[in-house]
Amino acid sequence: MGTANDQIAQRPGSHGWRGTLAWVWTMFGPFLGLVLVTGLFAVLTRDSGSFLTVYNWRTIAVQSVIVAASALGMTVIIISGGIDLSVGSAAALVTVVCALLVRDLHLPLAVALILGVLLGGTAGLLNGGLITTLRVVPFIITLGSLKAFRGLAKALAHSSSIYVPAAAKGWWFGRVLKVEPDPSWCLVAPGVWMLLGLSVLLAVLLRYSVLGRHIFAIGSNELAARLCGIRVARVKLAVYGLGGLATGLAGVMQFIYLDATGDPVTADGLELQVIAAVVIGGGSLRGGKGTVLGTLIGCLIMSVLNNGCVHAQIPNAWQDVIIGAIIVGAVALDRFRRGGAAGGGGRV
């Protein structure tokens, strides 16, 4: 809850230099974090010179794709005031189903991948449907589906990895997440471009569409949104469906990253990485706040950390400590900037 002063400071009427500063911070805060982290590793690895190379940044871009795909969906869900803990399990389920579709039903790989994305969407709709009809908080519903999806993945795979015959992989398959893109004018892997394209679409949707504004309204104050005539249940269903599609895409990317392996135990803990990325990027777990750009930068920060720790030869136990500190630091800074108004803008 903010004090009277904060509310004045945030009121449109009291713009001035502080308002401008706040805007600059909102846009560039996470970006600043990325620059800081990059700078830190550039200094730590200055002798080897391998960190700030084009090849390494292509590697980082490819390694960000899975988390980023899922984080796009999570951004929408978190803006709406919800959460989805089942993304890792759902992604694993998608890898298993994609592999089974190709291996046992002999579907073309491309079709299997599209069905994989749709399966993610279905899983999301299921979550959304349960949340709105049972009126149980998303945390609990998706905690349940976290277990259920993982179990389903293991059951379908008979607790085993499923490999797709090499002949079924098209010429394009290996190139989607190839670190050095082929053809080289792509600059980064096609999968990265796909993700960036979707990010732009999603940002436009959130900012300019009616649905997008409704999502923000619900996340800011669900009761008020309801009183304004927004059909909350329907919007929430769309939110989780959208989130599910993003998770489906993450699952498909995971499947490609594992070179067409259906792995029921993969992406364990993905949900935490994804939530961390959104929060580092300025999203608020209280809803009503979050940006696509921020989330993408949040993902990049985490990938840079992963990658940089290898270059600087920091043991991965410390990597986890550093990521933890960054999550807390990013949110605390955000709170400080708002002068004590907690992440969600002081609502109850």
């Binding site: 080897s48 391998s50 190379t53 090849y55 390494n56 590697t59 490819v62 390694q63 670190v179 990253y257 594992l258 992963n306 990658n307 290898v310 270059h311």
Partner: peptide, 11 residues
């Protein structure tokens, strides 16, 4: 897989 990729990038 990431570690192998990072080893490549590290040269």
């Amino acid at each position: 897989i990431q570690l192998v990729q990072n080893a490549i990038a590290k040269g």
